[in-house]
Design a protein around this nucleic acid. Structure first.
Lengths: 124, 124
DNA sequence: CAAGATTGAGGACTCAATCTTT
DNA sequence: AAAGATTGAGTCCTCAATCTTG
């Protein structure tokens, strides 16, 4: 399913699922910024993997890097106005694809059951 | 889950999940052989991706290539004795990891429900 | 020309090594 | 020495182009 979702998003909005997730996580974080390590964990990438993905997004203009005041080792990824725009442009396509490929196949009760099943195998 | 399963298999038996799946599919096919295209579909890889994976497995000795008598364009992947051995060596670790990471979390009824849920989103 | 398979080029990811700061 | 982040090297995958046969 997630592969199909990715293909759908990519063809409709020209955005990859992982990029969407990165923009989404940043958008809902305080000041639209997150430490590199925290963001890596949030989207399921290694530190180095995220570092290279952010390189690409900086190059595209969706994200900027910012230094950390209280810890000079640290670095933030910060969503730019263009990044917010890009996220919002793809939100609807993402939601529609998710509904069509996954959510529409289940009742509310089934979705609750599925959700509890998923929790059980989390982190195992 | 499948990522954890992969890590488990790889650390215990030194085999990747995708390699295991390839050996498994070949083992249950007639004459332990399959056309490259069919095998690619069965394990969810592109033709080129499978071609390169088979290159590695041939190099390791688990698989041989064979020509197709009735269609000279075609090519078979054939499991070698060493390949059968390798598959059997990792079967138990695979089953144990699958139980521990996934199956043990559910009752028989829940597994039936999950199975029907999965069928609904197949191919969508 | 279409189909089966492989190869060339390039993308995205990981591990290990490195640099900087704590 | 340990932690945050990046970089170097290598793996695995895909798309497009190619070669061979139907």
């Amino acid at each position: 399913v997630s592969r199909e979702l990715e293909l759908e998003l990519e063809s409709v909005e020209g955005i990859q699922l992982r990029t969407f997730t990165v923009l989404f996580e940043l958008d809902r974080a305080p000041h639209r910024r997150l430490r590199m390590s925290d963001l890596a964990t949030a989207v399921g990438l290694s530190r180095s993997g995220l570092s290279r993905l952010i390189d690409r997004l900086v190059h595209e203009g969706s994200i900027e890097r910012a230094e950390c005041d209280d810890d000079a080792r640290g670095s933030f990824a910060v969503l730019t106005g263009q990044g917010v725009q890009r996220l919002n442009d793809s939100r609807e396509a993402h939601a529609a694809a998710l509904r069509r490929l996954f959510l529409d196949h289940f009742s509310a009760a089934e979705l609750r059951a599925l959700s509890s099943y998923m929790e059980r195998v989390q982190g195992e």
